[in-house]
Amino acid sequence: MNGAPDLTLFSMFMSGLLLLIPLFLVWYFKMGLFNSLLISTFRMAIQLFMIGFFLEYLFKYNHFIINVLWFTLMITVAVFSVIKNSNLNIKHFFLPVFVSFALANFFVVLYFNTFIVQLDYIFEAKYIIAIGGMLLGNSLRANVVGLGDFYKSIHKEENLYFYKLALGANKFEALLPFAKKSFVAAINPTLASMATMGIVSLPGMMTGQILGGSVPLVAIKYQIAIMIAILASTVLSIGISIVLTVKYSFEKSGVMKKNIVK
């Protein structure tokens, strides 16, 4: 496999030059984004350079403990992001969502490494971090939608939930319709992108592999495998998240605690 050619300093300079187009438009039409555009680009560059150096060492040492710790850190950041973006109470939700993400993503990434890629060393840094990162990113997006939607609809349709309880439903029975609805909302974007994949856009992973020198027929096999893995980890993580957070979110009488939804 011959990788993509390195980008020289000149290449990076030319890439920076392209930034002048959005900068000029933003300045000319006084959109008030000039500073934030510069700051965002600068942050992106610095962060990526730092992570680039870090990954160089991570891949070089390729040590079990460091790889697992780094993936755990990635999970932690993802969980904070889920809770912040779905407007839920972090105190109640951090632990259950963390457990859910760790279970779902570790399971699927190790399954992927063991049975699909059939690595000799399943904690291989490149795979744990790259494949795991893709799974995690999708779990994150799905949980922001699914978990947020679940608690917000119970909050909004409280009377419907109470009505079910009054008919004699147990907590599981009364929550099931809400969970189903949130589940669908969470995985619909993944299904939609699977259904148009390859036609509307070439997925990032495939693009990367093709530039990295893989033949398209190898790249698509990886892409198919990763999409199914994403679906599996998404469904697992949203399911476990709901089951685990429900334990912390309701009074013994079955009423949702007041401070769950901000």
């Binding site: 009377n159 419907l160 009505y163 009054a166 147990n170 009074e251 013994k252 009488s253």
Partner: peptide, 23 residues
């Protein structure tokens, strides 16, 4: 009537709410 016994009470009564969001 408290935490646990509400569940039993709900199985013994019928509640019809004025809210017509029934499903």
């Amino acid at each position: 009537l408290e935490d646990k016994s509400f569940w039993e009470f709900r199985k013994s009564v019928v509640y019809i709410s004025q809210d017509l969001n029934i499903g």
